[in-house]
Design a protein around this nucleic acid. Structure first.
Lengths: 145, 145
DNA sequence: TTATATTTGCAACTTAGTTGCATTTAATAA
DNA sequence: TTATTAAATGCAACTAAGTTGCAAATATAA
């Protein structure tokens, strides 16, 4: 039995058909280390895909726990690849997101948990998200040249 | 010298003309304890205002430090009244926002500072925002009845 | 009370995302 | 290997959120 590429394995596990469109979109996510919007994806796939197809693929991937929405200050929704602890049933994206105000990319800081904060009486927490804005590593290094 | 209403004082301080539109929109913000979107405001003012006027007023108020944008999971931008430490020059909204998943309102938790988290090497922080999702006081109390 | 810069309203536009439906295709079964 | 079928794709048309340019109205200062 030949081993499937990682990308295909992800689709298989999610019970999704292995279509060229899905492989292409997943490949784009694997290529970039930051969260992607519809526009990012549309610009990155060589063979032009229909707008509706891209939006529907993103929704499907999200439902199946392959990607998660990233809270961001831009006007477009951005998604990032989930790590293995995400499931179809529950997204485990309790990590910090970092938005660079210079290059406008949003990174998942996977190894930083969101600190929990005490809430006023009567409020109960279900989920937290945290967005840190600043300058990313690449932009900081560029500034030193 | 007659004392101005608080609402007028806010506009005066911001060097904005005291127009009926601005007074109406500010009044709506003072009425509700949670963040408001264009739609919330449009639905709350009795005398119908032009869409463009509302959007432009929100932008002006934001620039003058009267309101601040609130990070939210909804598809519309929401704004909340700034407290006195905001200025025209810099928004001091370093407090937590709480979004109720039941009533969908977003509250500013003014007295809770956002904890700072260590970032990976090379990343520098400028500003953080934190959104806690859960059930608000009112909705929790309703559930007990 | 008039002059002027600001504010408002209208129309038309842009951008982000969705819905319905007909066609195509991946995966299963024969 | 081919036939079957449920799922996936593409097209057209639509909605929702927000913007731009310009002309008319108005708050304030002289």
């Amino acid at each position: 039995m030949k081993s499937l590429e990682e990308t295909d394995a992800l689709l298989k596990e999610a019970n999704l058909k292995l279509t060229p469109t899905r492989r292409r979109i997943l490949k784009v996510f694997r290529k970039y280390p930051f969260a992607l919007s519809y526009n990012d994806i549309n610009d990155s796939v060589k063979e032009k895909l229909d707008k509706v197809t891209i939006y529907r693929t993103l929704k499907t991937f999200e439902e199946k726990g392959i990607i998660h929405q990233v809270l961001d200050t831009s006007s477009q929704v951005k998604y990032a690849l989930c790590n293995s602890s995400c499931s179809k049933h529950e997204h485990q994206d309790a990590h910090i997101h970092f938005k660079c105000t210079s290059c406008h990319q949003t990174y998942c800081i996977e190894d930083r948990e969101i600190p929990s904060v005490p809430l006023p009486k009567g409020f109960t927490e279900v989920h937290s998200s945290m967005l840190v804005e600043g300058i990313c590593k690449d932009c900081n290094e560029l500034a030193l040249l």
